[in-house]
Amino acid sequence: MTKTTMTVNGKSVSAATEGRTLLSAYLRDGLGLTGTHIGCDTSQCGACVVHVDGLAVKSCSVFAQDIEGADVKTIEGMANADGSLSVLQQAFQDHHGLQCGFCTPGMVMSSAALLAENPNPTEHQVRDYLEGNLCRCTGYHNIVKAVMAASDQAVPAE
């Protein structure tokens, strides 16, 4: 085992890793940050999406040791400093952008990456960007509404 250090949600953290330790396992088992979900573990579902140096990645498909020293943001780092929900998280709540909630951390992290890249996406761009995030409750329409609302745009009609 090796000690692997990175910055997670603004704090310098370390945890023991093997070569094969995935970033998702490092976050969940090493740091106790279980907000990052493991849905499929085959990089299909996107529930484990986090930001590495500002870019959305599937944490089940990255080795922790390969990104030693990186700046990582997880769903636990998305709320405002006072603990209130961020605009995007609040929009997910307001538009019922979640049903069982399992896919939500990945949906929020992917959507946040989209809005950082493109603050005014079209509905089509939102759907396209979320292609790698699966919601098995099939709650896609409300998720898209939440992202449109969070970017201060008209929410698609029913």
């Binding site: 996107g46 870019l55 959305a56 990645v57 599937k58 498909s61 992917s110 989209l114 960007y129 292609e131």
Partner: peptide
Amino acid sequence: IGDPAVRNR
């Protein structure tokens, strides 16, 4: 190729 998260890696 793939999806945005895959394209970043």
